Computed example of a mutant assay.
Amino acid sequence: MTEQERISEPAAAVEAQVAKLTAQHARLAGSLTAIQAAIEARLRDDGLNYHLVKGRVKTAESVRGKLSKTGTDGTPKYPNGLDDLDDILGVRVITYIEPDVANVVTALAGQFRVLETTDKKAQQVNKGVLGYAAHHLILEVGPDNTPGGCAGCIGQRFEVQVKTVLQHAWAEFEHDIRYKAVGAIPPAIDRAFTLASGLIELADNEFVKIHEAVAREEANLPADAQGRAEPITSDALSEVLLAELPDHPRSKKEQYDWLVNLLNAMGITTVEKAVGLIGSADWNHVRERMAYKFPAGHVRIVDDLLLKEFGDQYIKETKSLGDDRARESKLRFRLKKLESS
């Protein structure tokens, strides 16, 4: 074999894998759509607050670059081609504050098979350095308890990166600079990125303190709330829940609008009636029966409360509210938990 043939053989193998990726692109794109929808549905079901869920199929150019990498001995780093890549499908979940990162990780671990989990921030802390901070998961659509809409992509692996908006901004900017750099990055720029990483960590911590301070400020229900007969609104409902459930995180803003519709469906149409229900609820019963893995968001725990109070009637009246086609089956499963002894 000539030297030219020896060099071109791995390149040809890489191109064959790239062609295979191209041929599978439509199927992969369909799987990504289903997986992303399942992730959003799970976060919505748990009442979690998040900024963005965004997915992508790895490009042919990116796959070509990754498969072309070799080890120190010159052998391919990914000898099995596409089968060695866990991030052909990738999803980013961007949260507002740091504690929600852990909640999202826990939620997704209950939805998909976890093949690998890496807390990049914890790694940085253990090394005593600053830098990229996010939580990476390698997940797989399992054959058991398969999320709705994902029956056609059982066995599909994918990567999820969970980070705050500030961590995301730092990572995107840092990657853009390094990707476009010609040659080595000057030490001064490396140092600037390290300093920026430290400032972002401080800012993330301050955001958590602000969030907690605002919750404490709003934790006192206005004295006239008990007698307010005006129609319940999402803002008023949020106010009531912050006062009644300060240890449970806020849900996404638009979810409170949906919760208003759920309440209205059961005849709870005023602030006064909402306060009466929420203020007299046996929240410990709901928490114990549902066995949440983390404090449920406001909307999720009230959804469960309404299910506990109204049972089958609640399912009948609200199964079609919202865009979750599997809502009825989910409610029936949760009702069994609520009714268990």
Score class of each variant (00 low, 15 high):
157 R>T: 07
198 G>E: 04
245 L>Q: 08
244 E>W: 00
159 E>M: 03
239 E>H: 14
202 L>D: 07
190 D>W: 03
155 G>V: 02
221 L>E: 14
228 R>N: 15
220 N>V: 13
153 C>M: 03
227 G>T: 15
157 R>Y: 07
219 A>H: 00
160 V>S: 05
163 K>W: 01
196 A>Q: 11
230 E>K: 06
214 V>S: 10
249 P>E: 12
194 T>I: 03
226 Q>N: 10
164 T>C: 01
152 G>V: 04
152 G>I: 04
225 A>I: 12
178 R>M: 07
197 S>R: 08
244 E>D: 11
240 V>N: 09
240 V>R: 05
231 P>A: 11
183 G>C: 05
239 E>M: 15
193 F>K: 07
236 A>P: 13
156 Q>C: 09
243 A>Q: 01
224 D>S: 06
250 R>L: 11
211 H>R: 15
217 E>H: 09
169 A>Y: 05
207 F>R: 02
240 V>C: 12
168 H>P: 00
208 V>N: 01
229 A>W: 13
251 S>R: 07
164 T>G: 01
249 P>G: 07
151 A>W: 01
233 T>G: 11
213 A>H: 06
197 S>Y: 06
151 A>M: 08
219 A>G: 13
222 P>K: 06
178 R>F: 07
208 V>A: 01
235 D>S: 11
250 R>A: 08
207 F>K: 02
153 C>W: 01
173 F>A: 03
251 S>W: 06
211 H>D: 13
179 Y>S: 05
170 W>P: 02
189 I>H: 14
175 H>V: 05
184 A>C: 11
185 I>D: 05
242 L>H: 11
216 R>S: 12
233 T>V: 06
219 A>F: 00
234 S>K: 08
209 K>M: 12
234 S>P: 15
203 A>Y: 00
193 F>N: 08
210 I>L: 15
157 R>L: 05
225 A>G: 08
216 R>P: 01
237 L>F: 06
206 E>C: 08
246 P>M: 11
159 E>P: 02
246 P>T: 09
170 W>C: 05
189 I>V: 14
239 E>K: 15
170 W>Y: 11
184 A>F: 09
155 G>Y: 01
252 K>Q: 10
214 V>P: 13
237 L>Y: 06
188 A>E: 13
221 L>K: 12
230 E>M: 07
181 A>L: 10
219 A>M: 02
156 Q>M: 09
253 K>C: 03
215 A>H: 05
169 A>K: 02
171 A>G: 10
200 I>T: 15
240 V>G: 10
152 G>A: 10
208 V>H: 00
206 E>T: 11
176 D>E: 14
226 Q>K: 12
239 E>P: 03
189 I>P: 14
172 E>M: 03
209 K>C: 14
238 S>R: 15
200 I>K: 09
169 A>C: 06
238 S>K: 15
170 W>T: 04
222 P>V: 05
154 I>F: 03
165 V>W: 01
213 A>Y: 01
192 A>P: 10
211 H>Q: 14
250 R>C: 07
223 A>I: 08
192 A>V: 06
188 A>C: 09
168 H>K: 00
237 L>V: 10
196 A>C: 06
153 C>R: 02
210 I>C: 12
221 L>P: 15
253 K>W: 13
238 S>L: 13
221 L>M: 12
166 L>H: 01
